[in-house]
Design a binder for these strands. Structure first.
Lengths: 196, 196
DNA sequence: CGTCGAATTGATGTCATTCAACTACAGTGG
DNA sequence: CCACTGTAGTTGAATGACATCAATTCGACG
């Protein structure tokens, strides 16, 4: 089933090894290529995806054709359009593949089954969701108050690994600034570090 | 215990009337005044607060002394610093009272008890959390791509009731723009509506 | 070696901020 | 009842940050 997913079952959701073995029917391993689109904005696509290996991106294209990245999803992230999954809506975000990846697809049935087989699952997952909300709150705060420069520095600190794996224009898109602006920010930073 | 809180127990968390009666010991009703500070950034304050009546605001003061409002919390909102509650950290946000309010305070003990007495609680709460995340994602997307004007229009649409209850500079703070800018945006909109 | 997308750079434009002045108004104390 | 004070909101002028547009360079890959 994959090292990472297995590890996630055990350490994040709190399942025992025997529990895990009974769940094989609830998810499906998919090998996807760079460029593939997994969820398309506007469709209904009620699935979660766990990233076993590689990287996805969650983004939204606005009416004027500009693309904004909500977040990247490297190994051990779970993504999916919550509007689709929980409220049967058309997806608000698109998800596509930016590195050849191995992902595990599942849906609500797995979640329900998890809470049946494992006493602690709901509680553990609850904690993960609150943690996620906590991060989103900080991101909002950062978008409200910080300059392009500060946002970039924050990104480096939070996701140094992602930084090295994605093209620069995607980082700009995540930060909500133009690629040219990011280029200039980087030049300034490089200059300063050279001085000191 | 309060109309709204009772209603929330029943309709959002899915508790029966008899369940609810057994929980009185797990929360406390507080009457607070405009201007009171409930959670102070930097302290550890592991409580949730349900707003029965009135309004709170969750905000963060940055190093340069500027204040940014993460969100308002009118009736039926639950607020609390998740870093404090779940991870025993210092609070990242402050919470204070912007209308004389009645609030219900509780902590993790209530949540644990809820999952004991009510089979569906976790599942229902799970859904609420995902819905919350969904809203935060859209807010991030809006901050990334939208102008001051668009953000304001979006705010009017989402929270027309809040708009009428808070001073304009707080709306500006929520939107992440200067109060002067909001004033100008409003002037433009007023002008346009007058024409047509 | 040629091609194509990514990144850089410069010139210019635009939107929002900043600072300062002024108005409106509510609350306070004489 | 009226001056005094402080806060909110508006307006104007100057500034600044980032966007846009266009040209060029860089670098990976066939």
């Amino acid at each position: 089933m994959g090292e990472n997913f297995y590890h996630y079952f055990k350490n994040e959701w709190g399942l025992s090894e025997s529990d895990i073995n009974s769940l094989a029917g609830y998810f499906r391993k998919l090998e996807v290529d760079k460029g593939d689109v997994i969820v398309r904005k506007g469709n209904n696509q009620p699935y979660f995806y766990f990233v076993e290996k590689g990287m996805l991106r969650v983004h939204s294209t606005s009416e004027d054709g500009k693309d904004h990245i909500l977040h990247f999803a490297p190994e051990n992230w779970i993504v999916g359009d919550r509007g689709s999954i929980y409220f049967n809506e058309a997806a608000f975000f698109s998800i596509d593949v930016i590195e050849d990846s191995v992902i595990m697809r599942f849906d609500m049935a797995l979640m329900d089954q998890l809470s049946v087989v494992c006493q602690n699952f709901r509680q553990n997952n609850d904690r993960l969701l609150h943690n996620h909300i906590r991060h989103l709150n900080r991101r909002i705060n950062l978008l409200q108050e910080a300059s392009a420069r500060t946002r970039y520095l924050n990104f480096i600190e939070l996701y140094p690994d992602v930084l090295l794996r994605v093209p620069q224009w995607m980082v700009a898109s995540y930060l909500g600034i133009a690629p040219e602006s990011l280029s200039r920010v980087r030049r300034e930073l490089a200059k300063e570090n050279f001085r000191s």
